[in-house]
Amino acid sequence: MQLPRWLLTLTALLFSISAQAAEVNVAVAANFTAPMNAIAAEFARDTGHQAKLSFGSSGKFYAQIKNGAPFHAFLSADDETPARLEREGQTVADSRFTYAIGTLVLWSAQAGVVDAKGDVLRKGQFNKLAIANPRFAPYGRAAVEVLTGMGLLDSLTPRFVQGENIAQPWQFVSTGNAELGFVALSQVMRNGRISGGSAWIVPSKLHAPIRQDAVILAAGKGNVAAVALMSYLKGDKAKAIMQSYGYEI
């Protein structure tokens, strides 16, 4: 069969483009949504590779990855889930590293509600306290650790409203349904400052560090864009973006 010349040219062109600019499907923890959108845009500009981002909770991504989801790389909200995938042979060896350390913040959408030391928790004059589910969400676990340290866990547990990932406590607080909530600093920080309401940036010594690990998944083996993205995350540009959203690096 004779193919028209223009079709051959077009096919050749498409192949040459895809040889240079690859695509990587990335599963990204919900707390890293805002910085990752910014990083992916810079990544595309600098390398020509496209990062296609999916956002969600790490536990759900674990189940999907184990069951053949077409993700090439995984940016988790914790360090346990990537380590577990590594043990179970679902990752590319030696690709795991900590890309950011998360910061927890107690936040209210109203100005003047949260003081600079978090004493509002002790006074208890609020309706609900939104947190991510501590059973599996790292920011929720850190929040419980902080409350335990302050001796407030038992008295405040009845006021918990729990989200399935860190995006939900933010929703609950920003719509005013919960007056207070523990969220990720990255959700309320823009250009290095808190964008609205009132907040207490929880000192990191009050809880175990929220190490967020990234890893290349088995499906991403040989994907040049996945490798490029991992090294891009370690670069200065990505780190500057992360810092502007309140991550320690």
Binding site: G59, A63, F160, Q162, G163, E164
Partner: peptide
Amino acid sequence: VLMIGGNIPEQTRVISVQIYDHVEAM
């Protein structure tokens, strides 16, 4: 329920949410 419930035991944590939690917690 997931969006407006807040996953509170004996108030809003229904079976479907409980299942979801089990899956999330692996």
